[in-house]
Amino acid sequence: MGTAISLDLADDLPAATLRELAAHTFDWMREVDARFSTYRDDSEVRRLDRGELPLAEASADLRAVLERCADLWTATDGYFDAYATGRLDPSGYVKGWAAQVASDRLVAAGAPNHCVNAGGDVRVRGHSATGAPWRIGVRHPWEPAATCLVLTGTDLAVATSGVYERGHHVLDPRRGSPAVGLRSVTVVGPDLGEADAYATAAVAMGAPTGLTYLDGLPAPWQHAAITDDSRLHHSRTLPVTP
């Protein structure tokens, strides 16, 4: 995935159980990376894109992700596009989806209190080890060591898409050029894969279109966006703490 993955298990379980849960989680994320990476020539995504792998022979996970990406293309009026660069790249959904699956598996395994962080796409459930709700910092788009917002909750999927690390790399699929206007978009809701896609789509729309789109997302979806000219725009119900 080209990013760091971290895991915080907050349940009072035996150390051996915690190690096993962590191992399963990281094994899953490595499996996703091997299958969906756009950097590895032998990944399913690259092989499918080159025409070497028929879709019918692809894994169930890849076929399910492509179906969901097609649904999200429709839901975002084409702004979330796995083919925006001209090649298959479902990364704008896969990272959040993978972390969501990891979180769901932890709940099913008896670890309902945890935080999975996939390069800034964060899924929290339950409470932290202190018993308090989780606090999720949103990176400041101009100051790498600072946060611009802190969100608090016990069941949140928080995805951020921005241009502060790689510049304006998110393409507007309608024009085929880098989108401008939004420096950072954070979407909060019940599913991290969808939140990831919605945030990517809003950045691709730019401003003011992306802001209008975010305002139109139905409950329980919430958002925060920072424009290229440093304006903060967010949902009134966003769970922000000082």
Rank of each mutant, 00 (worst) to 15 (best):
G96M: 04
T74M: 13
G51I: 13
V101C: 01
R63V: 02
A118T: 02
T76V: 05
G96I: 03
P54F: 05
F80C: 06
A60V: 09
R87L: 12
R68M: 13
A102R: 01
V116F: 04
V107A: 11
K95D: 00
H114E: 07
D89M: 10
S103C: 11
G120K: 03
G78Y: 06
L62T: 13
P54K: 02
G110D: 10
T74F: 14
V45H: 00
R68I: 06
V101I: 14
Y93D: 01
L72G: 03
R47N: 06
D81P: 02
A102K: 04
R87M: 13
G110C: 13
V101E: 02
D77Q: 12
A56G: 09
A102E: 00
C69N: 11
E57D: 15
A75T: 10
P54A: 06
C115S: 09
A102Q: 04
G51Q: 09
A99N: 01
A70G: 14
L62A: 07
G120N: 09
A58V: 04
P90K: 04
H114N: 07
H114F: 15
A99M: 08
E67S: 12
V65E: 00
A58P: 02
G86Q: 13
R68N: 08
L66Y: 05
L55D: 07
G119N: 12
A102P: 00
E57L: 14
A84V: 08
R105A: 10
Y79D: 09
G86F: 11
R50V: 12
G120P: 05
A108S: 04
A111I: 01
A99K: 01
W97K: 01
A102G: 13
A64F: 06
A111P: 02
F80S: 04
D49R: 06
Y93C: 02
A98C: 10
A108K: 01
E52L: 15
R46I: 14
D49N: 08
S91A: 12
A60E: 15
N113F: 07
G86Y: 11
F80H: 01
Y93H: 05
A118H: 01
Y93W: 14
S103G: 15
L62D: 07
A64E: 13
R63H: 07
A108P: 00
D77A: 14
L48P: 04
A99L: 04
V107K: 04
K95T: 00
D104I: 11
N113Q: 06
E57W: 09
L62Q: 09
E57K: 12
V116Y: 00
D89Y: 10
A58W: 06
V107S: 03
D104S: 11
G51A: 12
G86E: 13
W97M: 01
C69V: 14
C115P: 02
W73D: 11
A108Y: 00
A58Q: 03
E57Q: 14
H114W: 10
R87P: 06
W73K: 15
K95R: 04
A58N: 04
S59F: 11
W97E: 03
A111L: 01
V45S: 01
V107W: 03
L66Q: 07
D71V: 13
